[in-house]
Design a protein around this nucleic acid. Structure first.
Lengths: 186, 186
DNA sequence: ATAAAGATACCGTCTGGACGGTTTGTCAAG
DNA sequence: CTTGACAAACCGTCCAGACGGTATCTTTAT
């Protein structure tokens, strides 16, 4: 990616690249490694170029966050569409997506999200909004204690994945998922 | 705490003070506010003095982390001592402590821990060690899928507390705890 | 018992570098 | 020829850590 003056201009592609790099950096070296210099350099763009797309660092993190939440939300939407039982549908979708996170190539993206989430109070609020929004959307079908419990457990598994602190084997994992899905139907 | 040359030397006390201040700072103003200058000044110690006790910043965070984990571990130990059923004892203790975290005055300390945990890959590994150690200690009594599930759910609740993303009301919370404890006995 | 000889517990300043952000310049496409 | 997409140099600030010093504590030798 040399000589940006000559190369074709592809703002969307560069933007993507910047976000991807930011995600990768924070995953591999921690959120502190996400600096404007590091991100821009690793993306093969000058710092000025980075700041052209994102006016400041917060905007960069926001962009990253938005993209990740959007992807997460879309995955849930898909999982819900494939489920024709109404009761606990959202919870099961949530479970499915959370449990699938470690398999996906994009898993790293969500790891970044978590870190950023906890580190930045500003993003914490945005996540809260998403949760509140989704919770308000399915009060009748997914507000039972069992569903709540299942979703909390999913968060726990997700956290464990993030920390690589448990290394649950696949069969246990599958059994867990099944058990939680059953809970959402009770 | 003026004139450290005259005052009596109390290395342990100063060390504690530094850790406490670091915890308080990160709680009130975010982890970014934990700078050597800020910590040392707020603790009434010079930067040189701080660096005498902790050779670098990472050592300071490590110290903070160690203390918090030790406290957490002690709480679990206590809870286990008060439980005379062997099966799932560790899991119930874990549940109790996690659910109590939002009530405690020290809850804030653990919030700091979590953030640091996720932000610093280095500390992530240390937490992993703790989990592995504890898991290895109770393989017979606490390795059942149900126990695992219960602990994951506790992590989820803890995360929710940390994010203030759910605002579970007290009665639901209590019911959840009871349900999970029952799970540890099955 | 005491004085010398370290060792330990600090203080206060300085520096080198990192980092977020700005500004000015350059090229290419419409 | 204007605007959007970058580059490159630069600025002010902040911060970790180094350094050289000073005061107090502990041990040892006498």
């Amino acid at each position: 990616m040399k000589n940006a003056y000559q190369r074709k201009k592809q703002p969307e592609l560069v933007r993507r690249q910047l976000l991807d790099v930011a995600a990768r950096l924070s995953l591999e070296q921690g959120i502190a490694a996400v600096t404007l210099d590091a991100v821009s350099q690793a993306a093969g763009v000058s710092k000025g170029g980075l700041l052209h797309h994102f006016p400041n660092k917060l905007a960069l993190l926001d962009g990253l966050f938005d993209e990740l939440v959007a992807r997460f939300d879309r995955s849930i939407e898909e999982a819900m569409a494939a489920d024709d039982v109404e009761k606990g549908r959202f919870t099961r979708a949530y479970l499915t997506v959370c449990f699938a996170l470690d398999r996906e190539a994009e898993a790293q993206g969500w790891q970044v999200l978590t870190v950023a989430l906890l580190a930045e109070p500003h993003l914490k609020a945005r996540w809260r909004d998403w949760v509140a929004w989704r919770a308000a959307e399915f009060p009748a079908t997914d507000s039972s204690p069992n569903c709540l419990l299942a979703r909390f457990a999913a968060d726990g598994v997700w956290l464990a994945d993030l920390m690589q602190s448990h290394d649950i084997d696949a069969s246990t994992r599958a059994a867990l998922l099944q058990k939680l899905k059953a809970l959402s139907l009770e």
